[in-house]
Every structure is written in structure tokens, then in C-alpha cells.
Amino acid sequence: MPGKTQVAAQPGWYTLDPEPALLGSRCGRCGTVAFPKEQAFCRNPACDGTDFAEVELSRRGRIWSYTDARYQPPTPYVAADPYVPFALAAVELAAEKMVVMGQVASGIDAGDIHIGDEVELVLEPLYEDEEHVYLIWKWRPLVAGILKDVSEQLVRAVD
């Protein structure tokens, strides 16, 4: 990975800041937020707004539901070889009153998380090629994430 440039796997959908955020749109007329960004027409049927501001969505939310992918998804998913299963979460953002999908941070299994757990947005590699590492947003559970960090430190301390 050293020497490779880190880029977004889907440019314009999220910032690449140390504290990353998903980028949504806010309708200039009715205030409706959308992710991914609305470009042309407001999806609120009571609004005919056509001007949208880019807004950063809440970086934290709570798990609405979750699952995992035990079998390798078909292309265009770019899977590691050998395939590493991952968890997926649908996360409720309180301020936006919306639910946003994302993979769960690597190393955290479906068995480690619960509906209602608080999560935070992080960036992780999705796949890479010769020149680039393609970053994707993931949801990192605060409690399960800390427990994972501690256990890894303990393993290193024992080693």
C-alpha cells in the first residue's frame, strides 16, 4: 500500500477528511436532505425545488438493522482473495431522520453488534490497483470497535 494514492471509490459521495462525512444534498426550498446527492429535482412531492446545497451528514448514528455477507458477492464487487466475509449495517441518523447503508468496519462481525448500537463513520480500503487505494465509508461501532482495539493491544502485549 505504501506509495499508492488514496482516492474515493465513489468520488463526491463522502469527504476524505480524518473525520470523514457522507455528502448529501439539502433542498434550498423545503430543506429535504438526500443521499446520494439530489442534482435536479427535489424528491419531496410537495416541493418543486431545483437548487441544492451540499451538506455533510451526521457522522454518528445508531444501528437500525444489520446482517453479514457469508458468501462472496458477484462482480462488480471487488473481493479479496481469499474472500473475507463482512458485516453490513443500516444506520439511522437522528438529525436527518434517515437510514443509510454501509459495510461495518473490518474485523467486526455481525455477532459483535446489536440494533441500537452507536456507530461512527470511518474510511477503509475497498480494493486497490497498481496505483490507487480506493476508500469506502464504513460504520464503526463505538463499543465493539473499542473492544476490538483493546483486545488487539492485549494480543500484542502478550506477544
Partner: peptide, 14 residues
């Protein structure tokens, strides 16, 4: 409700 194939629900905030 999150629906296939969407990434997010509509926002109900407004």
C-alpha cells in the same frame, strides 16, 4: 424503510 437497491431512505426531517 430501506429498500433494495437504495443506499438510504428518504429523509423525514422536513
Amino acid at each position: 424503510v430501506i429498500e433494495m437497491p437504495n443506499f438510504a431512505t428518504d429523509s423525514a426531517a422536513s
